[in-house]
Amino acid sequence: MMLRVLLRKEILLEMRSREILVSMITFGAAVVLLYAFSFRPSPEILRQFAPGLLWTVVLFVSVLALHRSHSLEKEFDAFSLTLSAPVDRSTLFLSKWFGNFLMLLISQVILLPLFFLFLQLPFPSMPGAFIGLLILVDLGISSAGSLLSGAVMRARVNEFLLPLLLFPMVTPLMISAVKSTAAVMESQPFSQWKLWLQLIVSFIIVFGLVGYLIYDHVCEE
């Protein structure tokens, strides 16, 4: 119930401010166009590079959402409204996690077709597995990112700190995402990329649990 209230607020804030999604989509589209026009390798080489390019776009774009989700709370000291209310801080973490996940997912609905269109890549032949992977990796990025974003929100240079801390932290997730996406794009059997998928799921569980348990202390001033 409380999670629904908090999530509804996250969505309402984005509907009213229209800051997060617009900046994510604009920035993501700019990076995709940059990739498309700055180098023109052969289709074979491009197919090999595509998973890495895709996840760097997603990672860059996610920083905007993750940073904004907590910086919106700083304006007018709005966070104090929620912090002083009878709200469990773990539920607050879940709302930030799922709110950021939702923003990532919505931005990808627009950015993914652009990515495949401008880089002239065929859409993966296993669309179910590909979309499933996207959802899992988005959950991973948003779990670690929401936790970090909360931790650095009151730092003076939080806009620099967030990517500086986030990128090394999600490196295992990104490697797993690139490897498994490459396997899916090449239609490899599940046994070939099962290990990477297990790593992704482990990452989600670890950061989801850590965030759930320590967000109370993380979001303190």
């Binding site: 804030l13 000291d77 409204l81 002083s84 009878p86």
Partner: peptide, 28 residues
């Protein structure tokens, strides 16, 4: 307990009604 801080403690992008709706939901 209710805290009325020195800073507004409301979401600037939302209207007064929306902020109070959210407040009421938080406190049930």
């Amino acid at each position: 307990l209710l805290y009325l801080g020195h800073e507004p403690g409301f979401y600037p992008a939302l209207s007064a009604s929306e902020n109070l709706h959210y407040l009421a939901d938080l406190y049930g």
